[in-house]
């Protein structure tokens, strides 16, 4: 990350984020309440409380190891897979606790798409990768699948590049294309929430720009939570930003406000690259 970057140096980046220009849905669509999380003896999150509004982009920033991924993975209960974890507090999506024992975790995950920090396409064709979530849901209507593939790949800005090679292995794509394919896969069954963990970490500026455009376009339909180490990116794409440090939520608020006049000293230091 190019270090001493002040928000003032990139006014256009901020203006590009159309916060407040469009009416968002429920302001507390995802409600995180006093949430703490432990990996065995290691506490990764400490009493986090924040509300994520519907159909906006919320960015999590913070130094490495501060718990951004941990929080993100709790939203679709991916952390269930890890042994010896424990949590306190609650996370509600649309008023319903994700930890509700009566809630089926599979149906929860069907409503939440996820893009991982490291792109992880399946060793299948591009086509099969995109429609994977439909396949596991039992969808086999060829016309519907074809339509989904085209619509989704267009949304992920990948259609033009791959439309003639849908039957080729996804592993033959470039890194940036793979990441966009993973995004396409995550939105194929039209989830309500899209979680993105550093989607641009391994991409060049052009691919990054494409994905950023994509995020901005996607928020019309999805509630997006994105983890990023790239301050300009957070500034460009997000409406709200949360700054995490050592498992705590230091500051959360409107992106423009966080970048222009952070309330906390730590936030300011981190954003301006004077951290540590």
């Amino acid at each position: 990350m190019d270090a001493p970057t002040t928000p003032a140096a990139h006014p256009e980046g901020l203006d590009a984020a159309p916060s407040g220009k469009r009416s968002a849905g429920a302001p507390d669509y995802i409600k995180i309440e006093n949430f703490s999380f432990h990996y065995g003896a290691n506490q990764a999150l400490k009493e986090i409380s924040l509300d994520i509004p519907e159909r906006q982009v919320t960015a999590f920033i913070g130094p490495s190891g501060c718990g951004k991924t941990t929080l993100l993975r709790n939203l679709n209960r991916m952390n269930d897979l890890i042994e010896g974890v424990r949590h306190e507090g609650d996370i509600k999506i649309n008023g319903r606790s994700v930890f509700d024992p009566a809630l089926e975790v599979i149906s929860l995950r069907k409503r939440i798409g996820m893009v991982f920090q490291k792109s992880n396409p399946f060793p299948k064709t591009i086509y099969e990768n995109v429609i994977y979530s439909l396949r596991v849901a039992g969808q086999s209507d060829r016309k519907k699948l074809d339509a989904t593939v085209e619509r989704t790949l267009r949304a992920a800005a990948l259609w033009e590049e791959v439309k003639d090679r849908l039957k080729e292995s996804a592993l033959s794509l470039s890194g940036g294309q793979m990441q966009r394919l993973c995004i396409a896969r995550a939105i194929a069954n039209q989830p309500e929430v899209l979680l993105m963990d550093e989607p641009c970490a391994a991409l060049d500026p052009i691919a990054t720009a494409k994905i950023e455009e994509l995020i901005i376009a996607l928020k019309r339909d999805f509630t997006i939570v994105i983890v990023t180490h790239n301050m300009q990116q957070a500034g460009r794409v997000s409406d709200l930003t949360g700054f995490f440090y050592l498992g705590q939520l230091v500051e959360f608020g409107d992106t423009a406000q966080i970048f222009r006049q952070p309330r906390e000293r730590q936030t300011e230091d981190y954003i301006s690259g004077r951290f540590g």
Binding site: L81, I106, R109, K110, G113, M114, N120, P121, Y132
Partner: peptide, 9 residues
């Protein structure tokens, strides 16, 4: 994880 996140059992 990618598969599970897609809602696969």
């Amino acid at each position: 994880e990618a598969s599970l996140a897609c809602g696969a059992s």
